[in-house]
Design a protein around this nucleic acid. Structure first.
Lengths: 253, 253
DNA sequence: CAAAGAGACTTGTACAAACAAGTTAACCAT
DNA sequence: ATGGTTAACTTGTTTGTACAAGTCTCTTTG
C-alpha cells in the first residue's frame, strides 16, 4: 500500500526488505548514494524514508557509518494490544468468546465519567467471557457510547473481534489509555473464571477514543493472573508514555 | 544545552516555549515562514526541528494547517518509571525506604537467568520496603550483578534512590523490560506490607540493562494494589513497544 | 611490525527553489 | 442570510548543491 508520496513508497520498500529477511538483523543498509541510484530519487527523499524507519526503531546508526537493521518490526502492536483475539492468535493459541450479555441500559457512574457522559445516559453494555484454547482466561465488561454500540447488534459478537467488526463499519479507534492493577476476585468473577474467591485478578481498565479525541468505549478486563501478564520495554531514547499513578485513597474496590 | 546543530537549537527553543507555557496546549505554532524569518534559517532547517517535536509527540497537525501543541512534555518518563523515589515525588507525596537486607550471596535461578549468569554465581541482593508518606506500599527485591552491586556498599541505600546513586558513579541504565502481573500475597510479604495473606498484590518484574545491552539488575517489586497502578497511553501513530504475553503453564506462583 | 597519515566513502547539516495539496477567510452572487 | 467561488496562506514533497564531520581502508613511515 504505497501511501502516495515517494519517500513513503521508498520506506515501504525498505521495510519490506527487512521483514522479508532480505536485509538481516545487524546487516548494514545500502548507502544513501546506492539507494539514490536504485530508486532514481534525490538524496533528500532517500533520507526522508530512512528517517521514517529510524523513528520506527527499525534501523540505527551514526554519522559516517551505514545504518544497520535493529530488529524486525512487529506486526501491529496497537492492534495486538487492543484486541484480545489478535493477541491470542499472535501467541500461537486459539481465541474464543462467549457473550453473556449484550444490553442497552443507563451508564453507570464510572463508565459515564470515562466516556464524558451523564450517569444514566443510554449506553450499550457488553459482558463477554474470553477463552484461550477453550479455557476461561478473561472477563470483559465493555461500555460503548450509544451510536457506536448500536453497531454491535449488526454482527455476531461471538464471531470474533469487536474491534475488527467496528473497523469494517468505519469506526476507527486510534488511541487508548490503559490502567493496570490487581484486585481480589468478587464471587461472580471467581465463578466465571474458575479461580478462588478473593484471589488475585489482573485488571486492565481501558478508555478508547477516535481520531477526534471522543472516547467511545470504556472497558474493564479481568485476567486470570496465571494466564496473562503485561510486558513493557522502554529505552532512554525511545521515551514511552508510561506512567505509574497513585490512585486516590478509597477509590479501590 | 544546545546540541551543536542549528535544527537542534531551534527544536530546543520551541520546546522551551511549550514547557514554559508561552505556547499553550491546543495553540497553533507560528507558521514555518515566520520561524524562518525569526531564526534566520532556511525552511528545511525549520522543518527538521518541527519533525523532532512531532516525533516527541509534542505537536501534531496536518497539511495546510499550522501544527498545534499536543501536550506538555513530561520531565523524564524513563527516570520516573525506573525510580520509585522519582515516581512518588512526582505524584506529590513523600518517598521513604527501609533497607531490610543487603547481602552478597549466590544468584537464585530466576535472577541468574535474567542476568545471564549461572545459578550460584555471586550477586548482590537487596530487600527494601518502600514507603509513601510513611505507609508501606511496595516490597522491592533486587539482584545486581557483582561489580555493580558492590557499589551499593559505598552509599546509604536508605538515603534515597539507588539509581541516582549508581548514576553518580557512572553506571548509566538506559533500557529496561518490565513484566506486570498479579499474585497472591505470601505470608512474609503480607506481613511486611500489612495486607491479608493470599490477597492480591500487583507485581512488576524488571530487567535493567546498560547501553551495551548487558543486564545488570533483576528486580521483583510487589505493590499494595490499592496504592499503585500502571497506566499506558498508546496511539496508533506512536506505536508503543508494549506486549501482553502468555506465561507458560506452571510458571506462576 | 606497528603507528601515523592520506584518501575514499559515508552520513549529517544547511541552504535554495519550485510545485502540490489542504485550509481558511473573504468575497460575491443568489 | 446563504451558498459557492476565489484567493491567500499554510504545510507536504521533491530536487539540487555544497560543505562538515565521522568511519574505514590502505599506504607510508618510523
Amino acid at each position: 500500500m504505497p501511501s502516495g508520496s515517494l519517500h513513503a513508497k521508498l520506506a515501504d520498500a525498505l521495510r519490506e526488505r527487512i521483514v522479508s529477511g532480505a536485509l538481516a538483523v545487524g546487516e548494514p543498509l545500502p548507502s544513501e548514494a546506492r539507494l539514490v541510484e536504485e530508486f532514481g530519487t534525490s538524496r533528500g527523499t532517500v533520507r526522508q524514508a530512512l528517517s521514517t524507519l529510524r523513528n520506527e526503531g527499525l534501523i540505527e546508526g551514526g554519522q559516517g557509518r551505514r545504518p544497520i537493521v535493529r530488529r524486525r518490526p512487529m506486526g501491529q502492536p496497537f492492534e495486538t494490544f487492543l484486541s484480545f483475539s489478535a493477541w491470542v492468535e499472535r501467541s500461537g493459541h486459539r481465541p474464543g468468546q462467549r457473550t453473556i450479555e449484550l444490553a442497552r441500559r443507563g451508564a453507570d457512574p464510572v463508565a459515564a465519567d470515562a466516556l464524558r457522559l451523564e450517569p444514566g445516559e443510554p449506553v450499550i453494555d457488553v459482558l463477554r467471557l474470553r477463552l484461550l484454547d477453550d479455557e476461561s482466561v478473561m472477563l470483559e465488561r465493555s461500555t460503548f457510547v450509544l451510536d457506536i454500540g448500536l453497531l454491535l447488534f449488526d454482527f455476531d459478537p461471538d464471531a470474533g473481534s469487536i474491534y475488527a467488526g467496528l473497523l469494517a463499519r468505519g469506526v476507527e479507534i486510534v488511541a487508548a489509555t490503559h490502567t493496570i492493577d490487581a484486585i481480589a476476585a468478587p464471587a461472580e468473577d471467581a465463578r466465571l473464571l474458575g479461580v478462588p474467591k478473593g484471589g488475585p485478578l489482573l485488571r486492565e481498565r481501558r478508555t478508547a477514543s477516535l481520531a477526534d479525541g471522543r472516547p467511545v468505549e470504556y472497558g474493564d478486563d479481568r485476567y486470570r493472573p496465571d494466564r496473562a501478564t503485561f510486558t513493557i520495554a522502554n529505552e532512554r531514547a525511545h521515551h514511552l508514555a508510561l506512567v505509574r499513578t497513585v490512585p486516590e485513597t478509597g477509590e479501590a474496590l
